[in-house]
Amino acid sequence: MTAFVVLIREETTNPADLDQYREKAPLARDGHAITPVAFYGMQEVLEGPDFEGAAILRFPTMEEARARYHSPAYETARQYRQKGSISRVFIIEGIDAAPSS
């Protein structure tokens, strides 16, 4: 079943580290079926605290999403995101399309 990785950047704490993340994170796409659904575009907070930006990435399965997150290439990039920002990241399973009537 489809899975989505949601990255929410609450606050940038070190722009130089975040720049390193932006440089290294795309290298972690190789070998993983990732489809960007939303990527730091315009946003409107309707409830809850404001945040700087968000990305939503679609994967074919939860296992594929976990595999990319724990891949050596993303582990290298992730350390820079973690040093450069306060972020939340989670995986959520998608739902199958409702049957047609």
Rank of each mutant, 00 (worst) to 15 (best):
R29W: 11
G31S: 09
A16V: 12
M42I: 01
P36I: 09
G31W: 06
P36T: 13
Y40C: 08
D30S: 12
L18F: 12
G31A: 08
Y21H: 09
E23V: 13
D30E: 14
G41M: 08
A28N: 07
H32S: 04
I34R: 02
F39C: 08
Q20Y: 00
L18C: 00
F39L: 10
P15S: 14
D19T: 15
Y40K: 01
H32K: 03
L18T: 03
G31L: 07
K24F: 10
A28G: 09
M42A: 13
P15G: 10
A33L: 06
T13L: 09
A16M: 05
H32P: 05
D19G: 12
P15D: 13
V37N: 03
T35G: 01
G41T: 08
A33P: 01
E44A: 12
Q20I: 04
F39Y: 11
A25D: 03
T13A: 02
E23M: 10
E23G: 00
V37R: 11
L18E: 11
A16Q: 15
V37I: 14
L18D: 04
I34E: 09
D30V: 14
A16W: 02
H32G: 03
R22A: 11
E23L: 15
P15K: 14
G41Y: 07
T35R: 11
L27S: 08
T13W: 06
D17F: 01
H32D: 09
I34T: 06
L27E: 13
P36M: 08
F39P: 00
R22D: 05
E44R: 14
N14W: 04
D19I: 10
A25M: 06
E44H: 14
H32W: 10
Q43R: 14
P36F: 12
Q43P: 00
I34W: 06
Q20P: 00
E23D: 08
A25I: 04
G41D: 12
M42D: 14
R22V: 03
G41R: 06
R22H: 09
F39M: 11
I34M: 13
Y21D: 10
R29E: 14
T35F: 01
P26K: 05
V37S: 04
H32L: 04
D17E: 15
K24S: 05
R29C: 06
